[in-house]
């Protein structure tokens, strides 16, 4: 009491509110909201997202409208329609038997995208599931390491070529051949990541609470790998597109009746000197897809890493 009287009148006692001090003033944190905010703060990524979105939409809609069929060639004997340069009437010009390149390109893009997305999807889903359990189980590790060592030492292109020869050519066969062994690489990569995270203390805590391994993988390990998985997808899709182009160029990709970008590049490469547009337009489209998808994927991978959310 004595002291209170002596106190400077400009000061006064306040009571401590225990509950107030526990309150967190920051707004609620939401992982996915932060991811998208981060992603859309990058202008190049938005541009590339628009470009790749346009390509995807065009490749889905345009073949539906044009009804293009590479085997239906009424102009084959009308030499006046062959090798027309790009113009207002023929946007991308026409080829050696008078087919519209504009129609052909979008059908080819559709099939190439279909192949690469399907192969990337299978590779990722299978790779992540197998890799997650591979990283956890010691028994599985000894077996899978041997399998991986054998498969990883055979050149990928060789495996794909042999498979396509055995299964015959066609889009489903090519998807199967591309994803047949590549998921092992993904699984191995995920295994290493899981092994890094596996022994962290919060996983021990979960085990002490009786959490089964599958639930630990789903809730404790995979959320940490989102950024890594997105990086892998953004790397896989363009690489599968270039594999398709490469294999079709070698003539072991899709069948005679299927139209893909790779097949077009292979077919028209003989006109590189005489009618260059036939070769360069599919090449440019394929490059555009790869670059835009890669940049979108990389920005997404950065954005999905929560370390970038605090800035």
């Amino acid at each position: 009491m004595e002291e209170k009287k002596k106190m400077d009148p400009r000061f006064q006692f306040v009571t401590l509110h225990q509950e107030e001090s526990e309150h967190i003033a920051a707004p609620q944190y939401s992982y996915w909201k932060s991811v998208f905010r981060r992603f859309f703060s990058s202008k190049p990524a938005i541009l590339m997202l628009i470009i790749s979105g346009l390509i995807v939409v065009l490749s889905i809609l345009q073949p539906m409208i044009s009804g293009y069929d590479p085997l239906n060639v009424p102009t084959i004997n009308d030499f006046s329609t062959h090798f027309l340069r790009p113009s207002a009437a023929h946007w991308f010009g026409t080829d050696n038997i008078g087919r519209e390149l504009f129609d052909a390109v979008w059908l080819g893009t559709r099939n190439s995208l279909l192949i690469s997305f399907a192969a990337a999807m299978i590779t990722t889903v299978l790779g992540v599931i197998v890799g997650a359990f591979w990283g956890y189980s010691r028994k599985m590790d000894t077996v899978m390491l041997e399998v991986y060592n054998i498969v990883a030492n055979i050149p990928f292109v060789l495996i794909v070529m042999v498979l396509v020869y055995v299964l015959g050519s066609g889009i489903p066969q090519l998807i199967f051949a591309l994803s047949c062994t590549s998921w092992l690489g993904t699984a191995y990569f995920i295994r290493v990541q899981v092994m890094i995270i596996r022994d962290r203390e919060y996983n021990l805590a979960s085990r002490c609470l009786g959490t089964p391994t599958s639930k630990i993988i789903l809730h404790n390990v995979l959320p940490y790998l989102i950024s890594v998985i997105v990086t892998m997808i953004s790397r896989d899709v363009p690489s599968f597109i270039s594999y398709e182009v490469f294999l079709s160029y070698l003539g072991v990709g899709v069948g005679q009746t299927d139209q893909t970008l790779g097949k077009m590049i292979q077919e028209y490469s003989q006109y590189m000197q005489s009618a260059g547009y036939l070769f360069w337009i599919p090449v440019a489209i394929s490059a555009l897809i790869s670059v835009s998808l890669y940049i979108v994927g990389q920005t997404m991978a950065d954005a999905s890493d929560p370390k970038t959310h605090m800035q």
Binding site: E201, Y202, L204, A205, S206, C208, H219, N220, Y224, P306
Partner: peptide, 14 residues
Amino acid sequence: MVFQDPAASLNERA
């Protein structure tokens, strides 16, 4: 059990 390191023993993504 209560763990030693409060930073490491909680799942940051949950």
